Amino acid sequence: MAGSGAGDARISVLYSAEALSARVHELAREIVARMGPRPLIVPILKGSFVFAADLMRALHDAGAAPDMDFLSLSSYGAGRTSRGEVTILRDTEVPIEGRDVLIIDDILESGRTLAFARDLMAARHARTILTCVLLDKPGKLATQLKADFVGFECPDVFVVGYGMDAAHAFRQLPFVGFVEE
């Protein structure tokens, strides 16, 4: 258990900072082997920003020189349950047509957000579209989506830390954990 810095909440660690770093570097090598050195990385904000930053540096270490743009989508709002519809809060700015795009997300749960982003990149005529998620939470998919690259399989708990939040708290934690009830 670790203190959270948010009142009396206690966080149990699922994936330590060391385990995250090791897996991110493995993912970078897998991505470069499959996509080459110049993919366009499109993280879905806000939850994936820490993962995406670490992955970008790991891609550099693996010999890649990717470009990056951002997409901010929302399906949760301030709650813990998906509303079932995805809204664009911030769109990409770079041309997508003809690019090899890697969409980065923090967690694959319902699949709606990642499917929306993938369909958006396809509508913009990306040459290839692959997906990378830090966490895959099986059993909750509302789509037929399977991520191309997965960091870890996640138990059915609400996770926080490493950029992910609960009502805007806990993003700063250097590990992935869950709030104890």
Score class of each variant (00 low, 15 high):
residue 5 G to Q: 05
residue 5 G to P: 01
residue 6 A to R: 11
residue 6 A to S: 09
residue 7 G to F: 02
residue 7 G to L: 05
residue 8 D to S: 14
residue 8 D to Q: 11
residue 9 A to R: 01
residue 10 R to K: 13
residue 11 I to G: 01
residue 11 I to L: 12
residue 11 I to P: 06
residue 12 S to M: 09
residue 12 S to W: 02
residue 12 S to I: 02
residue 13 V to E: 12
residue 13 V to M: 09
residue 13 V to Q: 12
residue 13 V to H: 10
residue 15 Y to P: 06
residue 16 S to Y: 11
residue 17 A to F: 04
residue 17 A to Y: 07
residue 18 E to T: 14
residue 18 E to R: 14
residue 18 E to I: 09
residue 19 A to E: 15
residue 19 A to F: 02
residue 21 S to C: 12
residue 22 A to G: 13
residue 22 A to W: 13
residue 22 A to K: 15
residue 23 R to C: 06
residue 24 V to L: 01
residue 24 V to D: 00
residue 25 H to C: 14
residue 26 E to C: 11
residue 26 E to M: 14
residue 26 E to Q: 15
residue 27 L to I: 05
residue 28 A to V: 02
residue 28 A to T: 05
residue 29 R to V: 10
residue 29 R to T: 10
residue 29 R to G: 15
residue 30 E to F: 03
residue 32 V to K: 03
residue 33 A to V: 08
residue 35 M to Q: 15
residue 36 G to W: 05
residue 37 P to M: 03
residue 37 P to W: 08
residue 37 P to K: 14
residue 37 P to E: 12
residue 38 R to L: 00
residue 39 P to G: 06
residue 40 L to Y: 02
residue 40 L to D: 00
residue 42 V to Y: 11
residue 42 V to R: 07
residue 42 V to C: 13
residue 44 I to C: 00
residue 44 I to R: 05
residue 45 L to H: 01
residue 46 K to R: 11
residue 47 G to P: 10
residue 48 S to D: 07
residue 48 S to G: 05
residue 48 S to Y: 01
residue 49 F to Q: 06
residue 50 V to M: 03
residue 50 V to Y: 00
residue 52 A to G: 03
residue 52 A to L: 07
residue 52 A to Y: 01
residue 52 A to P: 04
residue 53 A to N: 04
residue 53 A to G: 15
residue 54 D to S: 03
residue 56 M to K: 08
residue 56 M to W: 05
residue 56 M to R: 09
residue 57 R to I: 01
residue 57 R to M: 11
residue 58 A to L: 08
residue 58 A to E: 02
residue 59 L to A: 05
residue 59 L to C: 10
residue 60 H to S: 12
residue 60 H to R: 13
residue 62 A to N: 04
residue 62 A to Q: 08
residue 63 G to T: 11
residue 63 G to W: 08
residue 65 A to T: 12
residue 66 P to C: 01
residue 67 D to T: 10
residue 67 D to F: 14
residue 67 D to C: 08
residue 69 D to E: 05
residue 70 F to C: 09
residue 70 F to A: 11
residue 71 L to F: 04
residue 71 L to E: 03
